[in-house]
Write a protein that binds this DNA or RNA. Structure first.
Lengths: 253, 253
DNA sequence: GCTTGTGAAGCCCTTCACAGCG
DNA sequence: CGCTGTGAAGGGCTTCACAAGC
């Protein structure tokens, strides 16, 4: 999960748990696929499998939206597609601005998944004057100097930051000042934003590191003896106490 | 959060909660920055701020690793960097293969954050024969036909999937068959993998949809009571009950 | 009979608040 | 005295299991 939020922790948005909100797009995708195959109804079991969750969780998730199913039958696919879309706010158009048109920014601009569902890449912004005017994915890149105007003119409320880490906070500040209230941050930086602004973070290197942690664990399971179970509680009286491994002479990483 | 796991839910890896593991890279990044500025020690309060979490959480996280701090003083930066690196398995080299060298795959290949910390892009693989041999980020692209051999030869255990959704499951199967046990999936697909294989998912469009949900909610707060957009239709046959909003005549999305 | 919707139980994680220790 | 390390309390999410309803 490449995710991080900046949100009132205990606030359940309109009674819908955050964890449920995060799964709605998953359900929506599975339902859309069913809809395209003209499947009229689906059971919680089938839909759960398609979405990669278990059926009890799915039913509880849907129960927060309302009673949209029919007992003994299942859920009406089209109806659910609409209800979830509406709940997520996808029945309206969301103009999005991408700031930082490097490799990643260009990749996102070209990414079909953006346009597919309510989102529209309204502007591409970069600090390099040489890029100004160059079209990327058919959209001309504009210069950072005009950021304020671009955001206002297009009514952008969602910004995507794909700049180098050093520029991210400054870009973020300018986006917020211009009226952006939701930010998707790909730069490996902790952004600070005023109350009321949502930040979500996608961090590729963090994802890899989490995988490496588990990967290492798998490798260790084979060889080492049966030393699982109880972690060493308070051990050595003083001095450093960790599971194992002390400082090496040469620092890696 | 662009995150999805496929993991034994109740298994705390070596006693370290999954939530803690997910934050270790964050701490590591903040610590590395301090290290570069030659800061010798840091308090839980300072480090927590830099990492964007609260200090109680940070201290509890560190307590799972061992007692690495000094009361009244704080934590030794270099020492913590090493301990966290070791815990995450970053003291070893992880060869990574990227499959699907489109815009996103190329962006990842060029992404500096990969190489920076234990990870090395060992191979780029694509199904397009025309790309074979073309260097991307200085690494020649190889053809999917040789996937098996490429994985084995390079000892790759972590694979990154950046193919179109239709190809993702098949690529995944082949990666797993070749010995990959951790997968970072950028394709908007639910991958099914055998037990023992970890999958993490990064889904850009899901992130946007979650932002849209909150964004919509913010907008709704101002003009409360205003019509939310969906014209009531689909005369409730016998009591569909949702918060509000019934089926519209024309299906959006 | 079959599937939804949901109280209840349990688990995991966060937060609190302070004892413990340098 | 300051800051860490940690029991205990609290909250949210998941899972169970079954009553409700078509």
């Amino acid at each position: 999960m490449a995710t991080g939020r900046t949100h009132r922790p205990a606030t359940r948005s309109r009674g819908i748990p955050e964890a449920t909100v995060a799964r709605l797009p998953l359900y929506l995708r599975a339902l859309t696929a069913l809809s395209e195959r003209s499947v009229p109804t689906v059971s919680s079991e089938e839909l759960a499998t398609a979405a990669g969750v278990n059926s009890a969780k799915l039913r509880k998730d849907f129960s927060y939206l309302g009673s949209y199913g029919t007992r003994g039958v299942g859920y009406d696919v089209e109806y659910l597609v609409y209800q979830i879309s509406r709940e997520l706010g996808l029945t309206q158009d969301w103009p999005v601005a991408i700031v930082g048109i490097g490799n990643l920014g260009a990749a996102l601009a070209n990414y079909g998944g953006f346009a597919s569902r309510g989102f529209r890449v309204a502007a591409l912004i970069d600090a390099d004057p040489a890029m100004a005017g160059t079209p990327v994915a058919g959209i001309p890149v504009q210069h950072t100097d005009d950021l304020d105007r671009i955001i206002s003119d297009n009514g952008v409320s969602i910004g995507v930051i794909t700049t180098p880490p050093g520029a991210a906070q400054q870009v973020c500040d300018r986006l917020v000042a211009a009226g952006v209230t939701s930010i998707l941050n790909f730069a490996p930086t902790v952004l600070s934003v005023p109350e009321g602004v949502d930040v979500r973070k996608v961090d590729l290197s963090i994802e890899l590191q989490i995988l490496a942690f588990h990967e290492q664990r798998k490798a260790g399971e084979d060889a080492s003896g049966a030393d699982e179970g109880a972690p060493p509680m308070r051990a050595t009286p003083n001095g450093r106490k960790g599971p194992d491994g002390d400082m090496p002479a040469v620092m890696p990483a």
